[in-house]
Design a protein around this nucleic acid. Structure first.
Lengths: 242, 242
DNA sequence: TCAAAAGTGTTTAGAATACACCCATGG
DNA sequence: CCATGGGTGTATTCTAAACACTTTTGA
């Protein structure tokens, strides 16, 4: 109910509330995650997701944006995709006290090199597959972020949030292939994307060479659509029903 | 990062952490939600989602299950679908102090009449459309629960969680129609459900009259599948891309 | 015998798939 | 002129949608 009996703020065992961010990007064809190395106990020297305390005057979303700016130097939030993943609240998840953490997933198009600041010894982009084991329950958070992201690619247009402002359809396709770990048929992918209104919008006349070789590819911008209907389903695998 | 500088638990402005539950059910063809009437200020006399404090030794999920049992008398959790919706953390969402609330969506198949207990003046099932305006930011939570639920029906098998242990395909279809606010073609719905492995399992020989009239319908149980692949998409409406 | 609800069949349109093929560019 | 990546066309297969029809029950 959100009811506090009485008004004594200190009547209860205090909870600390933090945010943790699974900041993901696609670089050189690989899914990468932003990690920081912890400088203090517990888990000193272990890698962890960036994050920090929610301040008394800000929401969890505000705190996540602030921490993101602090840890990555990213202050230009245009085109950034930030999304609440879930809240992790196991009583024993921090050995010192009761810490409830709101996890966020963030997607960056063209990430800056991070500088380790604050209580982090260093910060680095790490390939998703070689990340971990991480401090606290951050392995679970990261896995949840990946699973959620993969599902969202199917029925939203977030993939464009992984791409620079102007991108080729090949780059967009690589996002799908990287996150899903599959390959897609290029002609069909192309048709599907172009047939979805406002998924992408062509940049007239513009073209760019991608691999140094080959025909220059037309450039597109994000078209503003968020929903992808009908969805773009990943190829069925054994683990799923049907 | 989840790092506490030092170990003074009282060094920070304390946060209270609560859970709130959007408990939904389908009764007599209408989507209903469990509400409680608040007995105290603020919002005394207003309706709100049930919920309460997370205790020091339990996770938010544990707290949600406990509150659900306390408010509805539901202790048999078999077949219950409980799912974290998100965390609501606006600094001003509770006028007295900083309260961060983890919202859950819960689905009940055949709900008992609730008894108002604890600090609630009374508890009642209320049709979804006539719920609100609610206390705090509970209108938003409820709307988010509805939206999330509608989306989940498309690619999961949660609809069975709305139905009693043995149900007819007509009842299952009514869940979809009620939550989506649409009508579906019965033959096509039937084919789709039966073609999905382990969505439902027939109860051999059993049948039941539904509307007092008509041919008795065969009974099914939930088949254990969680994913629905390919999805069962709701009819496209104007508001969506494509 | 009629209304109501379950269940079956069939036709058609659309979407996804799997290819084969052509185009432009750098080496 | 070949390798590389972009872009187009098309036949096939699968799915979804629409709707006519039969079956079984209570009144």
């Amino acid at each position: 109910m959100g009811v506090v009996q009485g008004y004594d703020k200190y009547a209860f065992e205090p909870f600390a509330v933090t945010v943790d961010l699974a900041v993901l990007t696609v670089r050189s064809g690989a899914l990468q995650v932003l990690l920081v190395e912890r400088g203090q106990e517990p888990y000193a020297g272990r890698w962890a997701l960036p994050g920090g305390f929610v301040r008394p005057d800000e929401s969890a979303e505000d705190a996540a944006l602030r921490e993101l700016a602090e840890e990555t130097g990213l202050t230009d939030v245009s085109g950034l995709h930030l999304e609440q993943l879930g809240t992790y609240s196991d009583p024993g998840r921090d050995p010192r006290m009761r810490v409830v953490s709101v996890a966020f997933a963030a997607l960056l198009p063209d990430p800056p090199e991070p500088q380790g600041g604050g209580d982090a010894a260093q910060a680095r982009w790490v390939p998703y597959d070689s990340a971990g084991p991480l401090a606290f329950d951050h392995d679970r958070m990261l896995a949840d972020a990946h699973r959620r992201l993969g599902a969202e690619l199917e029925h939203t247009c977030v993939a464009a949030a992984f791409c620079p402002p102007e991108f080729t359809l090949g780059e967009l396709q690589q996002v799908y292939e990287t996150v899903w770990g599959t390959t897609l048929d290029r002609p069909n992918f192309r048709r599907k994307v172009l047939a979805t209104p406002d998924f992408v919008a062509p940049v007239p006349g513009a073209a760019r060479l991608t691999g140094g070789r080959g025909k220059p590819a037309a450039l597109y911008r994000s078209g503003g659509a968020t929903a992808l209907h009908p969805p773009l389903l990943r190829p069925a695998t054994e683990g799923r029903s049907r």
